[in-house]
Simulated assay, not measured.
Amino acid sequence: MAENNPRGLPLSSDGEGLKRGTRVGEGALREVAAYILDHPIGGHRSSDEVGFAGVPPTVMVRCLYEGFNHPNGNGSKNYKIGSLQMFVKNYGSCEDMGPHAFPVEEVHKISVLDIRLANADRHAGNILIYKEGEEGQFVLVPIDHGYCLPENFEDCTFEWLYWPQARQPFNSETIDYIKSLDAEEDIAILRFYGWELSPECSRTLRISTMLLKKGAERGLMPYDIGSILCRETLKKESKIEEIICKAKDSVLRGTSETAFLESVYEIMDHHLDELSDKIASF
């Protein structure tokens, strides 16, 4: 639905992409953002270090080709700007086999990335598999992040939510990594690399990062936290949408973003405390 799309299909009527809360033409930015924000353990990437979730190196590129679809038919705009991702040798995707063979930590690293970036398109087909080491342990590689960091939480989708590993607790290394995350720093990093997040996308990142941190702090599992972001049905709002709605009702019109977020976090704390108590009672 973007301008000059390869098939010459109609453009988006309102600028929204295939997933609610995303904008046509921003997919490449989101692909690169997922790589930039996939920080290694111990800090921000300073070289070719592999990030915590293992997003392959991804960069913005300009590609020139006379065959690109351009309505004007002139040669002045025969280029496109997009993202280029390093190829990963693999044995296929998670669609090709059941999840029971995947190590818990490998599933958890994907869950941390998806919750934090509010991924609206995490299905088994965009997680690659390869084997590492003499014992051939499976390693999962997340790809296809063009629908992360949306403007709202309406279309958050995590297939791993239904895998048994999602009901296992985070290990200490993962918890320490989650504690180190800082949404304000991430917004500044993306700005440094040329993407000024919209206020809506910035709000999404702040809320999802805080949810992940607060959930992990309480010992909640990926399933517990991820379920708060995902709708049970298309028409029933997710728990995070309900929390945001309550926060909007609790503050005056014109309230600052900081005050609004404080209200969100307060309501979030109350819900997470109730959830923790409920889980502990079983």
Rank of each mutant, 00 (worst) to 15 (best):
E105V: 02
G67S: 11
I110F: 06
P71W: 03
G17N: 15
E49T: 08
I36S: 04
V24W: 06
P103C: 07
R45T: 12
I41D: 05
P142T: 00
G54L: 01
V59T: 10
Y65I: 00
G27H: 14
K77S: 14
L84T: 04
R45Y: 08
A124E: 12
A120I: 07
E105W: 00
H123E: 07
S111I: 00
I129P: 04
R62I: 11
R116V: 01
H70C: 05
V139P: 01
G133T: 12
G136K: 12
I41P: 00
C94E: 09
S13N: 08
I127A: 13
S76R: 12
R23D: 14
G75H: 04
R23F: 09
G21S: 11
G54S: 01
G133N: 11
N119S: 13
P99S: 13
E66P: 00
N126R: 06
N69I: 08
M60L: 15
S93W: 00
A120P: 01
G82P: 02
I115D: 05
F102I: 15
N78S: 09
L64F: 14
G82R: 06
D121A: 04
H108I: 04
R116E: 09
V107D: 05
R122W: 02
H44D: 08
A34H: 01
A124K: 14
D114I: 00
E49Q: 15
G92W: 03
V50G: 00
D121W: 06
G43T: 07
P56V: 01
Y65E: 09
I115R: 10
V32M: 06
G21Y: 11
I129F: 05
H123A: 04
S46D: 06
P56N: 04
Y79D: 14
S76M: 13
A120C: 15
F87W: 12
N72H: 05
